[in-house]
Design a binder for these strands. Sequence first.
DNA 1: CAAATTCATTGATCTATATCAATATTTAAA
DNA 2: TTTAAATATTGATATAGATCAATGAATTTG
Lengths: 258, 258
Amino acid sequence: MPTRKFETVISLRDIKVACQECSLKEICLPVGIGQEDLDRLDAIIDRKRPLARGDHLFRVGDGFQSIYAVRSGSLKTYTTSQDGQEQVMGFQLPGELVGLDAIAEDSHPLAAKALETTSVCEIPFTDLESLSGQIGGLQRQLLRVMSQEIRDDEHNMVILGQKSAEQRLAAFLISLSNRFRRRGFSATQFNLSMSRSDIGNYLGLALETVSRLFTRFQNEGLLRVDRKHIELLDREKLCTYSGAQCAEDDVLQAEPNN
Amino acid sequence: MPTRKFETVISLRDIKVACQECSLKEICLPVGIGQEDLDRLDAIIDRKRPLARGDHLFRVGDGFQSIYAVRSGSLKTYTTSQDGQEQVMGFQLPGELVGLDAIAEDSHPLAAKALETTSVCEIPFTDLESLSGQIGGLQRQLLRVMSQEIRDDEHNMVILGQKSAEQRLAAFLISLSNRFRRRGFSATQFNLSMSRSDIGNYLGLALETVSRLFTRFQNEGLLRVDRKHIELLDREKLCTYSGAQCAEDDVLQAEPNN
DNA sequence: CAAATTCATTGATCTATATCAATATTTAAA
DNA sequence: TTTAAATATTGATATAGATCAATGAATTTG
């Protein structure tokens, strides 16, 4: 919840913040990169000033220059079909990357819009590319990140392809919870920066269905909802509801390397 | 339709076939790689003997060693959820790659099974990785291919998230048609190597729905179906049905660089 | 070649979830 | 603060497509 005033403070201060100090460094570039190489990587990363809610980081068709890492806040990515129908493709939380799908054709197939005040790191791709030719660990990490994204998308396919509304929303909440936790936020209490309509669109459900499910989950004692605020009361049961192997997820994703 | 006899012939002959002669070379490694580099790449690629229908190329949880390019035939990739329910994630046609989703965790999240007699090139990943550190064009191409895969998965999300049964099947057929054409096969006449059930599963539909739609499309004069054989009679109308920007697709994907 | 198995088609019915509609709440604007 | 515009909730109804069920090809097996 940075204020306008805060904005200018950030731009003064952040410009000097190095990757080493960035809370996201294990996520952006986890493994096997030495201090020296890290400095080189740091040198190419550009810290932009925050986006306001509703601002676009990029739009469909924009030329591809950079990938971005969310530092704080959140984004949604989406397309609009020719009949004006919007399809939400994903939500990006702190520590997550956007824009990897633009490499193939040198242009962004999705738009990315800030759901709240959001700041990102910009990583110019040509620099990253040439650097990753020199630093083995970086190349590998880049491939891993992309591979993981493919995997996540496959997971979404399963959800959209054969899960019930109830399972979809449960899985969505568990996924958010895991992602928050991994970044050091609370796994049981968080704010949804996206609207019910965004959630529904993302999950292939009507927004009314999402709303009804929230009330139902609340009545069943699984969680507490207050507008945007969510408190998960029975994570385990929610996992069961999601019909997924998310106990496994818990083990694998909980505090991976702290 | 290679026979058993043919199999041994292949193994004798293929072992000498170089990437340069491979009809897939523009697909596997399209751009900006010189002859010399191509030889180096060729040296690491292993040509395996064909898989029979039903054989697995790899299974869920198998350690990740290589990615594979389909040379002939076709594969399906799928997972099985804990309740035994299968989810088909994709079909791979000649010239397409499988296994990119295994890089992230060093193990295959999906199984890959031959839908018919199928031969593949095996590309050991560590070799590919070190080579791509040396050959700029290769690194870039690898990233492009992965990026494209993310894009394709995003496209699938749109289809599963908000298209009707009719639109899904139409889009599926158009996609197959485009992919066949790009590889030099007929765009209007082809065989489905997968069952109705596989198609339905992939599209998030019941197999009965798929069957009904085939008959309906046929009655409307859009296509002719005879068991596995498909002949597209009105591609344009099918595009309209799919509710997609596939006229665009046609332009972009038709014979990209011949 | 017959028997068994798998796969596909077609019909009848049921249901999860969309859609339509009204109201309430929150946020933004004036 | 008042008004306007989003956004969310809740209810009533409609429907696309699932599920159940029976039959008919095709393919595989012994």
